[in-house]
Amino acid sequence: MKAVLLPGEREVRVVEREVPRPGPGEVLVRTRASAICRSDMSLYTGNPIVGGDAAGRGLVVPGHEPAGDVVETGPGVTGLALGDRVTGYLAIGCMRCEHCRGGRLMLCPRWKCLGFDVDGGDAEYFVAPAVNCLPLPDELSYTAGALLTDMVGTQYATQKSLAVGGATTLAVFGMGPMGGAAVLVGKALGATVLAVDLLDERLALARELGADAVVNSGSDDAVARLRELTGGRGPDVVVECSGAPPAQNSALDCVRKLGSVAFVGESRQTTINPSDQIIRKLLRVTGGWYFPIDQFAELSRFAVQHALPIERLVSHRYQLDDAPEAFRAFDRRLTDKAVFTWD
């Protein structure tokens, strides 16, 4: 089979490998869609943000957002059959600790990440634990299924935890793919959504996805404009998706007193002023990272019932042979959300 490897230093190899075989409790999936995520760039450059010794050395097939068809089951697998359409849950846990038993496999102290620690979906086939292969409704395409987990799933879990609903004014900073997913989820939950970004083309897409108003933080004072749009009060909830320190600070500055801020965009270091930005506003500040595995049935029903146009978040589609071009363009930000497809 063909598979992608990322040895680091912005090198991409498409190699031939043996089709893997599923072990006990595992299934073999024929990949039909696998998305490139901004976190994959850490593998591309050789500085992985998660993963063990194998990550970033070109030993592991990337791709933590895959979907496809079950083509073989290993010993002891129940509940999955050949031909089942599935999407992959990226966190592989021990299934014994308190976090795994609570559904949050990504908090397991011994967790491994699909596409970082173990081979992921940027290949014609991948193997995963049966518990990580989540049933994909017929109403959702393979591409939608791939994006449903990391992006839409993260936003759904985050916004649900913050009680986003019809009475909420939600501001979203960063209109990349994750921010776009935040707009889709927020509108489906009934919120008034305000989108913030530096790029007019991304703000135009945010309007298409349902944003009620947009703010260009490059030409406007985003904090002042968001307060103006909310009658001087500030948004009830802010979801920060860019990971940029200025946006993170603006999120804390603009939100109303007793409001909530979720940091979703990855960031290694940011300087804030807790006294003025958090303590004296009595804010709730949380991290938004993936979703509990037992929430997937609810999440997939939500996507179907609200007819979420998830594929609208995809900017480019590639064949696996074009992986060098795909990663190069993604690294240069010539694409937003790119997906390998086998349609």
Rank of each mutant, 00 (worst) to 15 (best):
V314I: 15
A181Y: 01
E139G: 07
V27G: 05
D150F: 11
N249L: 10
L5E: 04
V15D: 03
R280M: 13
C241K: 06
L205H: 09
A323M: 09
I310R: 00
G179Y: 01
L205P: 03
A262D: 03
Q295W: 13
L148R: 07
G121L: 04
R227H: 12
Y142V: 07
G25L: 03
G166H: 06
A204E: 15
H316F: 03
R227V: 10
D322R: 13
V15H: 03
A182M: 02
V50H: 08
D220K: 12
M178Q: 10
P20R: 00
C100V: 03
R284K: 15
V14A: 04
N132P: 10
G68N: 08
L147Y: 11
A204P: 08
A55I: 12
G58P: 01
L147Q: 13
G218W: 01
V237A: 07
P177C: 03
V172K: 01
R256K: 11
A326H: 06
A211H: 07
E139D: 14
G176L: 02
V152C: 12
G76L: 05
T335Y: 02
Q319R: 15
T158K: 09
L258H: 11
V183K: 00
K160H: 07
L134M: 15
V14N: 04
G265N: 03
N132L: 07
S217L: 10
L107W: 07
G179Q: 00
L6G: 04
R301N: 14
P22R: 03
P292N: 12
A144S: 14
R13T: 04
T149M: 15
D200Y: 09
S275F: 15
E240M: 01
Y125Q: 01
A188D: 04
F116L: 06
K112E: 12
G210Q: 04
G210C: 05
G165Q: 04
E266H: 09
Q277R: 04
M1R: 04
E298C: 07
T45W: 11
G23R: 11
Q155W: 00
L170G: 02
A55E: 09
G288K: 06
A123C: 03
A329H: 11
A130S: 13
S300K: 15
P129G: 04
L313D: 06
Y156H: 09
V185M: 00
A211Q: 11
E240I: 02
L5M: 14
D220C: 10
M175G: 09
G51S: 02
V304T: 14
P274I: 12
L147V: 12
T45A: 15
S34E: 02
V60T: 06
S275K: 13
L194S: 08
A247Y: 03
R332E: 14
D150V: 14
V4I: 10
H64V: 08
G234F: 08
L194Y: 02
L107P: 02
A195C: 01
D150W: 09
L170V: 00
D117M: 06
A157Q: 11
